[in-house]
């Protein structure tokens, strides 16, 4: 009995440590849920009552303290449509090149570029858009074709959409690449063995299979783009416009920018509070709906792939 027998650690030290870690991690996780609930609660509570049919269909009135946000909704939708038209084909083609054609180092170089693009702060995209699209491309076009008249060399819908397209390009590239990866190689082999060229195989077999994934990327990019303010700050968004934009070189109002303007630039910030909340609610619902659509589309495609 002299040698001390080896026992399980007694005392409650280890158990308390284990328990407190569980509590600590639990608190962190709970905090996130709580923040989302509080955020949504405040916005819905303050903004909900103001979201009426009139609010959605009317233009702002009397220094933005009354009226609705229709021009901002209209501008946002128009902006993301033009953006999607630009970003989906370019992003999808980039991914097709990366996954189907490029080999070795080339893939790494492109992937690094895409990832870096995703890491650039959005305000930098805004400045780039101003410098490249408006000052360089727009002014250049004006000088070359319109005798220096100011037509494209100013902030407008087209350049804002292009700037946003650059920002959301990685989203489309990544989800298209994922979709291409999910297309079984046996399809490619089968097609090539039938005497089709690489391009025919890609176009007729691979891309149709990847299409839902490409569309998912498109929707995600739209929901991302719809919520960004910084890139359109200098490239096309307007404080207030009496008319809806009619052409690609018009300026436009946008939901996110509208919120920014109301909360910082308006004559009476306090009076616009309810409208700010309501606008925020509309913007959130819009992006959530888009995200939800993307998730649905993606899960449907995934289960389809698993079935085959």
């Amino acid at each position: 009995m002299n040698a001390p027998a080896r026992t399980l650690p007694h005392g409650r030290g280890p158990q308390v440590a284990a328990g407190s870690i569980a509590i600590l991690t639990g608190i962190c996780a709970f905090l996130i849920v709580a923040i989302v609930v509080i955020l949504m609660g405040i916005i819905i509570w303050n903004g909900g009552p103001h979201v009426t049919w009139e609010f959605l269909t009317k233009a702002p009135e009397t220094g933005m303290t009354e009226g609705g946000i229709f021009p901002a909704i209209y501008g946002t939708v128009l902006l993301v449509i033009v953006m999607a038209i630009a970003v989906v084909p370019v992003g999808a083609m980039t991914a097709v090149y990366m996954h189907e054609y490029a080999r070795g180092r080339m893939v790494d170089i492109i992937r690094t570029a895409v990832h870096n693009l995703a890491g650039v702060p959005s305000i930098v995209f805004g400045l780039f858009g101003l410098g490249f699209f408006i000052q360089f491309v727009g002014r250049g076009v004006d000088r070359a074709f319109f005798g220096g008249q100011l037509i494209w060399g100013q902030p407008c819908l087209l350049w804002a959409a292009m700037t946003l397209a650059l920002l959301t390009l990685p989203v489309v590239v990544v989800s298209t690449e994922e979709a291409l990866r999910a297309v079984p190689d046996s399809y490619r082999e089968g097609s090539l063995a039938l005497g089709s060229t690489k391009w025919q195989t890609t176009w007729k077999v691979v891309i149709p299979q990847a299409l839902p994934g490409i569309l998912t990327g498109g929707i995600l990019s739209v929901s991302r783009g719809a919520g960004e303010v910084a890139p359109i700050l200098f490239t096309g968004a307007a404080y207030f416009l009496p008319e809806l934009p009619r052409t690609l070189n018009s300026q436009f109002m946008e939901l996110g920018y509208h919120i920014f303007v109301m909360s910082t630039q308006s004559v009476n910030v306090d009076e616009t509070m309810p409208i700010q909340y309501a606008t925020t609610l509309v913007l959130l619902v819009l992006t959530f709906a888009l995200n939800f659509a993307a998730i649905l589309l993606r899960s449907r495609t995934r289960s389809k792939i698993e079935q085959s």
Binding site: P184, S186, Y187, E189, G190, S191, L192, A193, L194, G195, V205, Q209, S308
Partner: peptide, 16 residues
Amino acid sequence: LRRRVGMVFQKPNPFP
């Protein structure tokens, strides 16, 4: 060449 020499694979791989 591949039109003249056809191939059938291990796992049936009809296109979807």
